[in-house]
Design a protein around this nucleic acid. Structure first.
Lengths: 312, 312
DNA sequence: AGTAGCCATAGATCGAGGCTATCAAACTTG
DNA sequence: CAAGTTTGATAGCCTCGATCTATGGCTACT
C-alpha cells in the first residue's frame, strides 16, 4: 500500500500541459519554471504508475489514460475553486451580480414588490433580470448564463434544485355581466361549456390553465391565443370570453370600472406552486436561501390567495 | 489576490474532524498527531477567511459554511481517489470483479457465447452475474451494487452512460400450420387480429412487443402472460397463439421438430437496440469499452438478424 | 553539420507540514 | 471546592519535498 496520493499541484501541472500541449508555455501560464512542471508531471506518473503524456521533442500528446485523468483532474480543480468561492460568498452574503430569470406570468406581479425590499435590505446585491419562458430559463440556468430562476414547480430537472416559495390559487376573470361574475367557491365544473381565453404556446401557465379547462369541459378559444395576461384580460373586457389568472396578477390586471369581475374557485382551488431553481452545484446556496426569504417577505398580503410555503 | 488555495491535506483534516467531531480521534484516524490536525484545520480557515468549526473543549460543531464545504471537500477527495483508481485499472485492464446485470430476455442467449470468449481472452476478469429487469438493474447500477448493465437502449437516465452494442430484429414464432408460418418479409400489419402471447409486466421486451401489436392491431392474450420466453414458446407450440421473439432467442428457443415456424418481418423490421450502461463517473470506462468489444465479438453470425453497432 | 527548440536531469535552497512538549480552559469528582 | 482529566491550541524544532538555476541530450529543420 502506502501509495502516495496525487497532489493538487501535480493535477494542475497535468491539466496545464494538457491545455497547452507544451511544457514551456504551460509552465509560464502556471507561473513556475519548466523543470518544476516537468518533475511535477513525472511525479504524478510515478505515483499513479501509468504514463499520462507522450513526449517527443516535437510534440506533447496525452495517452488514453491521460485524457481520462485530465478530465477528472479538471473536475477536482474546479471543485476546489468552488470551495474557495463558497467561502468568499459566505463572508459577504448576497452581494454582487445575481442573474435571475423570471417567467412572464410572475415577473410583472412579483418584481415590483421584490425589488424595493431587496434594495433596502441587501443594497450590495445587483439583480440582473431576464424574462423568459420556463424551457429557456432552465436551459440558461444549466448552461451557467443564469444563477437563479423564478418559475413554477416542480420541474424535476436533474442537477437542478428547487426552493418552494408560495402557492398561488387560480381565479376566474369574467365580464361584469357574466353569469359566473364575482362568484366565490365556484366549482371547477362550473366552467363547462365556457369560452376560455389562454396564453400562446410555451407558457407553463397556459398548460396549467388548459388542464383545468379539460377537467371542467370548457373550450379554449384557440384562434385568440395571446402573448400576455394583460392582452387576455383586455380581450375578456371586450366580451370575447373569460379567462383564468394566477392570484398575484389580479391586482395589476383587473382594475376598477373596466367592466370586469373576479370569481374564486371552491377550495381546494386549482393553483400553482412558484419557487426558485438553481444548479445543485451552485456555490451560493446560502445566498439563495436568503433571497428566498426576501421573496416570501415581498408577497402581497392575504387579500389574495397566496400562501407562502414554510421554509424547511 | 495571491490567496493560497486549500490543500488536499487540509480538506482531509476538515473531513476527518467532521466525521469524528473530535480532534484527537480524527487525528488518530488520519495517522497524524493532534496538533498537526489542529493546525491544518486552522490553516484552512485562515486561507478561506471563514470559521468552519466551532470548538469548545466539550464539543466540536461545524458552522453552516463548514457543512457546505465539508460536502464539497468529500466530493473532491472522492474524485482524487477515483483518479488513483482509474490509473490502477489502466495498469491492469479488465481484471477483478465485474458486477454485470443482464435483462432476462438477453441473458440466456448471449451469455453462453460471451462467457467462454471472455474467459479465453481476459482470464483475470471475474464476472459476477445478476439477472433482473431493467428498472432493478438501473437502480442497482445507480446505487453502486452493479458496475455494468446489459439491457435495451435507450434509457435516458441522467448520470448513466450507454454503449450501443447491437440491433436485434424481432421475429414471429407461430405453430407450423399457422397461415403466417415461415413467412419472410411479413408486414407488421399482417399481425392484425392475431392472438399474441407476451411476457408479464416489467419486462422491457413486453413493452416493445406490445407497441408492435398495437400498431398492427393485434390482441394480447392477457390471461396468459408468461414469466419467460421459454414458457411463451411452449405455449405457442401448444397452439395458444403466436409470439414475437428477439432474433437472438430463436436459436435456443425454437428447436426442430416441435411444430414451430419462424417468420421474419419486412424490413425495416421492428427491433431493439441492446447495449451496456454504466455510471458516467465510473473509473473503468476503458474496461467497459474493451468488454463491449468482446460482446460484439461474441454475437452469433449472420444467420440471425443481428447487426453490431460500429464502435465510435 | 550546425542550430534552434524543447524536455529531462542535477544540485542547491527554502518553506510547508510534521512531531514532541507544554499550556489553557472546562467539565468531573472525591 | 480543589485536584484531576479531558481536549484543543501554541511553541519550537526538524525533515522532506517543491521549487529554482544551470546544464545536458535529443530531434527536426536549414
Amino acid at each position: 500500500m502506502a501509495t502516495p496520493q496525487p497532489t493538487l499541484t501535480q493535477l494542475r501541472a497535468l491539466v496545464g500541459v494538457a491545455d497547452h500541449r507544451h511544457f514551456g508555455r504551460a509552465a509560464a501560464a502556471l507561473h513556475v519554471s519548466q523543470p518544476t512542471l516537468s518533475s511535477a508531471v513525472a511525479a504524478l506518473e510515478r505515483t499513479l504508475g501509468v504514463q499520462l503524456v507522450e513526449r517527443t521533442t516535437r510534440s506533447v500528446l496525452l495517452t488514453a489514460v491521460g485524457e481520462q485523468i485530465v478530465t477528472r483532474a479538471r473536475g477536482v480543480l474546479g471543485a476546489v475553486d468552488d470551495i474557495a468561492e463558497v467561502a468568499v460568498r459566505a463572508r459577504a452574503p448576497l452581494t454582487g451580480d445575481i442573474r435571475l430569470g423570471v417567467i412572464p406570468t410572475v415577473a410583472p406581479y412579483l418584481l415590483p414588490r421584490l425589488l424595493p425590499t431587496l434594495r433596502g435590505r441587501w443594497p450590495q446585491a445587483r439583480l440582473r433580470l431576464r424574462e423568459a419562458q420556463t424551457a429557456t430559463l432552465l436551459a440558461e440556468l444549466r448552461g451557467g448564463a443564469l444563477d437563479l430562476a423564478l418559475l413554477a414547480l416542480p420541474n424535476d430537472e436533474p442537477g437542478i434544485t428547487e426552493i418552494p416559495l408560495y402557492d398561488e390559487d387560480f381565479v376566474l376573470v369574467t365580464p361584469a355581466e357574466h353569469p359566473l361574475a364575482g362568484g366565490s367557491a365556484v366549482p371547477v365544473a362550473g366552467l363547462a361549456g365556457q369560452d376560455v381565453l389562454l396564453l400562446e404556446d410555451g407558457h407553463c401557465f397556459r398548460a396549467q390553465a388548459l388542464d383545468v379547462c379539460r377537467e371542467a369541459g370548457a373550450r379554449e378559444r384557440a384562434t385568440l391565443r395571446a402573448a400576455s395576461l394583460s392582452t387576455i384580460v383586455q380581450m375578456v373586457a371586450g366580451g370575447l370570453g373569460l379567462t383564468l389568472l394566477p392570484a398575484a396578477a389580479v391586482g395589476v390586471e383587473v382594475g376598477e370600472g373596466r367592466g370586469l369581475a373576479v370569481a374564486t374557485f371552491r377550495r381546494p382551488a386549482p393553483h400553482r406552486r412558484i419557487g426558485l431553481a438553481y444548479r445543485a452545484t451552485s456555490a451560493r446556496v446560502t445566498d439563495w436561501g436568503l433571497l428566498a426569504a426576501e421573496v416570501r417577505a415581498a408577497l402581497p398580503g392575504t387579500e389574495l390567495d397566496l400562501s407562502p410555503v414554510p421554509s424547511v
